[in-house]
Amino acid sequence: MYQSKWRIFTNHAILILGALFMIMPVWIAFASSTHTREFVFQNGLQFWPGEHFFENYGAILFDPSATKGRVTALEMLFNSMVLGLGFAIGKVIISMMAAYAIVYFRFKLAVPLFWVVFSTLLLPLEVRIVPSYEVVAGLGLLNTYTGLILPLIASATGTFFFRQFYRSVPDELLEAARLDGAGPIRFFIDILVPLSVTMIAAIFIIMFVVGWNQYLWPLLMTTDDQL
């Protein structure tokens, strides 16, 4: 009993220290951002917040001159949010449908097609960015959110993880659904999607971060400062 309590205390202490270690740089950056530029240059990074929170953040969010451009930081955040949500939602939906077709529609080319999709992980965006640009330009989708999101909406990673999860679902669920008169779409929506909530959340977070952190792709696909 004593060892169990000591182990719980030790585990929580390690987790708390790890969380503080990760949060501390973010807190110092935030606290320093509430001081004036001159004060930070003279005294270094600060641990305690200053008195210029509303002044500094009002300028950076709503004043284009603060970012040395023609758009505000708020517009930049909005564009990143649209790209992140578009990537996450699109990749989750496409990956779920592709994995469902590969696992449950047992056609002859299912396995080869899966490995073709999976092999695209060997081709990063930088390798295929020129032909992707030509396709987007040919479709007239430059300077549009559709042109930013649609070409990268497929995800071999998401397809792989959903495929592995669907393969772990017992076949008895499919047989029971058939006995109840459920078709493929009903089985997918009413049974597989609720079972996949945890996987959906994990893939959504990963893909949202991928979309949010995109820099090279939007830089090449847009010339409009508003995007």
Rank of each mutant, 00 (worst) to 15 (best):
F53R: 03
E55F: 14
E55G: 06
G58Y: 12
G58E: 09
I60Q: 07
L61Q: 08
F62D: 10
D63W: 12
A66C: 11
A66E: 10
A66N: 08
G69W: 09
V71Y: 10
V71P: 02
L74W: 15
E75G: 10
E75L: 15
L77C: 14
L77H: 12
M81L: 15
M81C: 12
M81G: 06
L83Y: 09
G84K: 02
G84W: 07
G86T: 04
G86I: 02
A88E: 03
G90R: 00
V92N: 03
V92E: 07
I93A: 14
I94F: 13
A98H: 01
Y100P: 04
Y100A: 02
I102S: 00
F107Y: 13
A110L: 11
A110P: 10
A110T: 07
A110F: 05
P112H: 09
L113S: 04
L113V: 01
V117C: 05
F118A: 10
T120V: 04
L121I: 13
L121M: 15
L123Q: 07
E126H: 09
R128V: 12
I129W: 07
V135I: 15
G138V: 02
N143C: 10
T144G: 07
Y145E: 04
L148M: 08
I149K: 00
I149F: 03
L150S: 04
P151E: 08
L152R: 01
L152Q: 05
I153W: 04
A154G: 15
S155T: 03
S155P: 06
T157F: 15
G158Q: 06
T159C: 05
T159K: 00
T159A: 02
F160D: 07
F161P: 00
F162Q: 01
F162R: 01
R163L: 06
Q164R: 09
Q164P: 09
F165H: 12
F165R: 00
